[in-house]
Amino acid sequence: MAERIERVESQLISKGSAAARLRRGDDKGFVVPVAGGMASYADENSPLNKVAGLGFGGVPTAAELDEIERAFFALGSPVQVELAHLVDPVIGQRLTERGYRLEGFENVLGLAVSADTERIVPAGVEIRPSAGDEFEAWIDLVAAAFAAPDTQGAASHEEFPREVIAAAMRDFVSAAGVARYSAWRDGELAGGASVRISDGVAQLTGAATAFTHRRNGVQTALLTARLADAAAAGCDVAVVTTQPGSKSQQNVQRQGFDLLYTRAVLVKQP
């Protein structure tokens, strides 16, 4: 299951990275397959600049790592490897020997998707596919939530400006098959969320509620709507990535998600 989840994660990043290059209209950037995963450079300071899924296709060779490091360093970027704890431990050892430093962790949580998932929609709340004419408002709302750090639990090793997050989300929506949902309450856009479905996996790729509409069941409504649609599409698992011990992790565990595995974040500077 972890191999499947890491594969669809790599697909998501690869498609978003390609969309970033298309948006800019240049060839600055790359996606390189490596040891069952891929290395991506999308844009300057982008959250899509990383190596994902590494190790589910074996241990990378020194030559493969040399090539990836040269590609990142040529663009002035560090190499960030997000390494699942289920792969061969020798990979972590070799990365450490090459000068990579452990800078953090992230948790991957999952929920078995059931065909009888109930849509929970409080009175006064409406969940619907996000229309094209509200795209900018949806981006503003969701990007603002991503840009605000979660201060509970283990601190994130990285933060991104709101405009960088917004650009990455545009790339996801335009090219990676990410579906948008909007929550409306009392005639106002109260929340937004997204999901990508691939290979039986529903990737919950973000959710946010406007400050003035919090504690009114908007997040639960957005979550159950996506889970119900994922079940209808034939998914068997929904996944979300959080910082360890964060409020986000706490919230999804209350909805029945369990910790599947952890990724170590290892970084080598140019």
Rank of each mutant, 00 (worst) to 15 (best):
M1Y: 02
M1C: 06
M1D: 08
E6L: 10
Q11A: 12
L12F: 08
I13Y: 08
S14M: 06
A18D: 15
L22W: 00
F30A: 09
F30W: 11
V31P: 12
P33G: 12
M38H: 02
E44P: 00
N45M: 06
V59I: 14
L65S: 03
I68P: 09
L75P: 00
S77R: 10
P78H: 12
P89D: 13
G92K: 15
L95N: 12
R98H: 10
G99C: 14
N107F: 04
V108K: 05
L111F: 05
V113G: 06
V113W: 00
P129T: 03
A131H: 05
F135H: 08
W138C: 04
A143R: 04
P149R: 12
A155E: 12
H157F: 06
E159C: 01
E163W: 10
S174L: 09
G177P: 14
G177F: 09
V178E: 15
E188N: 02
L189R: 07
A193K: 00
S198I: 07
A202G: 15
A208I: 09
A208F: 03
T209Q: 08
T212K: 12
N216H: 15
T224K: 13
A230Y: 11
A231T: 06
D236A: 08
V240P: 04
T241I: 12
Q243Y: 02
G256R: 08
L260W: 02
T262P: 02
R263F: 01
K268L: 07
Q269C: 08
